[in-house]
Write a protein that binds this DNA or RNA. Structure first.
Lengths: 269, 269
DNA sequence: AAGTGGTCTAGACCACTTT
DNA sequence: AAGTGGTCTAGACCACTTC
């Protein structure tokens, strides 16, 4: 679209040759209502290819030189676009090898969204036990957070996670039924590794960021039993909404964390 | 130091003119044990000027062109150094105006380290009531976290913070006595604004990052009274260590947060 | 008009990885 | 040797702010 116009408007700087990208600028002279820098346009195009699956998680994307040729911009401009994507953890650069699409199938990815750390020793990967998996209609609060209509189909999951055999997390998840059609208890149980890896590989949905709200609560009877703690033990209550491309919410997760031997870790910059 | 040598080693690339910076390279030919990129060396030099107070919080630092001339490198190299400093919140760039040293005397800085948000409405700035301010000897655990020796002089502060008149946070702070010599209850009470602003202006110590550990606990009698909640109410317990330049720990803060009307907010990327 | 940071280009060489 | 990302330079123009 908009291929190689004279481009008289005040947009890209020394873009002498004329560019194959020109998303932000209307054809009219003078007025440029929605201007955005070239590298942002390139970044959007690359993100689009990530979203559509042209390059899949774990795969190598084209080199900077190749992308520069494709988009008819300089390598430096592509570099700046990829720099931002790397900062957002959408891709990973490896010197000498290339740039790879990020994936949740990695040890280091496991603790990107789970900030619960053991008080002593290195973090281990938790073991999951599923309590319940069912389809249901979204309650009003769930629907609101997932950008659905009240009563829309959702998948509900309840599970307990244990570290070294010690039950530590009990959590409930709600997923949009449309996006995760065909997700069953069997597939969850037979799948080894993080749930986000399953979502990514089997349902083409990659979580790229999340917001979390945390409070302190008292353990109710049922949760206390699952975590094997006394009733009224104080627990961390986390409500997490995860987003995929386009800031679309695709998971609501409400967890109760026992902080007997673990703590929630955060870095403030 | 090391001014304008022929610089035959394999360090900076097209650094044709010879550089005024050459920190990483020993004069010997061949071996370069602790090589670091030019822009990292520039970044370190700028950080040093921030630390020594050559440019004070809130002030304008020299322009990119000026710094490029001073360090005898290109503007692009200075730019990359400043880019990283801006990403770490040590400086703030403002197009057309210049680059400013970050300061805690800003509305937006107040909630950089305090992630407790009201469930409804916009965050207000809390009111402080000091319960206790005294000098003491550092207990072993405090000394360890502040990189002091057990028994070293520390300043202890206990206070309650209220939002819109509702007591919400009770916290205890420990500060190295050497760094904050002369800090008294009077100065704390007469000072309006965030404590980090006081530390920055009066003691020349700027907090630049922090790590936080959070757990859930039950309110003990004394804390319950201060927060006006029932005994055994679940509270968030935060332990925060703040660092200044050179990753030097200079504050330990243990806080109890009531999550009746507030929650701890976090963004996961 | 002059100065600042922001974007873009073109070309060079370096460090690392693979062939 | 060839290809990749990483660093560095030099020069241009743009958007924004101040004089």
């Amino acid at each position: 679209m908009n291929p190689l116009p004279p481009n008289p408007t005040s947009s890209a700087a020394a873009n002498a040759g004329g560019a194959a990208v020109g998303a932000g600028q209307a054809g009219a002279s003078g007025a440029s209502p929605t201007f955005s820098p070239l590298y942002q346009q390139i970044k959007a195009l690359i993100t689009q290819s990530l979203q559509t699956g042209e390059w899949k998680p774990g795969e190598l994307i084209p080199s900077e030189v190749e992308l520069a040729n494709r988009f008819k911009v300089s390598q430096g401009t592509v570099r700046k676009a990829i720099d931002e994507l790397a900062a957002e953890n959408l891709v990973m650069r490896k010197q000498g090898k290339g740039t790879f699409v990020s994936t949740h199938h990695e040890a280091r990815a496991h603790f990107r969204f789970l900030r619960l750390m053991p008080d002593e020793g290195v973090p281990h990967y938790p073991e999951s036990k599923f309590i319940e998996v069912k389809r249901m209609r979204a309650p009003a609060d769930v629907a609101r957070l997932l950008d659905l209509k009240s009563g829309d189909a959702v998948i509900f999951i309840k599970r307990v996670q244990s570290f070294d055999g010690v039950p530590t997390i009990v959590e409930e998840l709600w997923l949009p039924g449309m996006t995760f059609k065909g997700l069953t208890a069997e597939r969850l149980e037979e799948y080894k590794g993080p749930m986000y890896g399953l979502f990514e590989s089997e349902f083409g949905t990659r979580m790229i960021r999340a917001t979390e709200k945390i409070r302190a609560v008292c353990a109710a009877e049922e949760d206390a039993a699952l975590l094997r703690v006394a009733v009224a033990t104080p627990l961390l209550a986390s409500e997490r909404v995860s987003f995929t491309y386009g800031d679309k919410p695709v998971e609501l997760r409400r967890g109760l964390y026992s902080t007997e031997h673990h703590h929630y870790h955060n870095e403030l910059n």
